[in-house]
Amino acid sequence: MQRSVRYTLAMIMLVVASVASARPGEGDVAPDYLGRDRSGNEIHVSALRGKVVIVTFWASWCGYCMKELPILAAIQKLAGPAQLQVVAVSHDDSLDIFTKIRNKLKDLDLILTYDAGDQRIAKPYGVKGIPHMVMISRDGRIAHTHVGYGEDMLDDIASEINELLAAPAPPTNAAPASPAAVASP
């Protein structure tokens, strides 16, 4: 009896742990909190409703990530800030390194945020490594996720962005997608 109780508890803990660390998938409401911008303002997916949002997790030591940021800035400029917003979340860097890199990248018209050691931005997105990109549709739902991608994926990524930009914005009177499980910290 005691053995079956322990086994049952172990199985419950395993299920809870796997659900807690699960990455949200396509169609799920995107986790809302994205950090703070250069001015200290909180950035939330819900505030960007109506735009396509690309959230990319990067670090200064990731060569591909550092190549990607100017490309994403150019795509955002081409689409227009009313249509597309890129939020680049620094992951796995110290605050000092992030601040130095952010200052070097000041001419890129991206929102650059910092994910502290507690990873309160990365964890809800299920980030385990970089590069990690999440494309969010105009209604705040995850449309595509790319993990560990490279230059060979650029055509697919560009097609997905174009597809999202071509989709109509949700009606302004529609209730935003926001389940209680996606609360900001």
Score class of each variant (00 low, 15 high):
Ala175Glu: 13
Ile43His: 10
Glu68Arg: 03
His44Cys: 13
Pro179Trp: 02
Lys128Asp: 04
Leu14His: 07
Ser90Asp: 15
His91Asp: 13
Gln85Ala: 04
Val134Trp: 00
Leu9Cys: 10
Gly40Phe: 08
Thr145Ala: 12
Ile157His: 00
Leu110Phe: 04
Val127Ile: 14
Glu68Ile: 03
Thr113Ile: 05
Ile54Met: 10
Ala183Cys: 02
Gly126Glu: 09
Thr8Gln: 11
Glu68Gly: 09
His132Val: 01
Cys65Glu: 06
His146Pro: 00
Asp96Ala: 08
Gly25Phe: 01
Ala175Leu: 11
Leu164Met: 01
Val19Asp: 10
Ala180Ile: 14
Glu160Gly: 05
Trp61Ala: 13
Pro170Ala: 05
Ser46Gln: 07
Gly129Met: 05
Met153Lys: 12
Val16His: 11
Thr99Asn: 15
Tyr33Gln: 12
Arg120Gln: 12
Ala79Ser: 06
Leu108Lys: 14
Arg3Gln: 13
Ile121Cys: 06
Ile142His: 00
Ala74Arg: 15
Asp28Asn: 03
Asp96Gly: 05
Val19Ser: 12
Lys51Gly: 00
Met153Leu: 09
Ala167His: 00
Cys65Ser: 02
Ala88Ser: 14
Ala22Trp: 00
Val55Glu: 01
Trp58Asn: 04
Gln119Ala: 13
Ser21Ile: 10
Thr113Cys: 05
Asp156Met: 08
Asp109Ile: 02
Gly129Gln: 03
Leu105Thr: 08
Pro176His: 05
Phe57Glu: 01
Ser46Arg: 11
Pro70Arg: 04
Ala17Met: 13
Ala122Lys: 02
Ala10Cys: 09
Asn41Tyr: 07
Thr145Gln: 08
Trp58Asp: 04
Cys65Gly: 03
Ser46Val: 09
Lys67Leu: 07
Val87Arg: 01
Ala158Tyr: 02
Val182Gln: 10
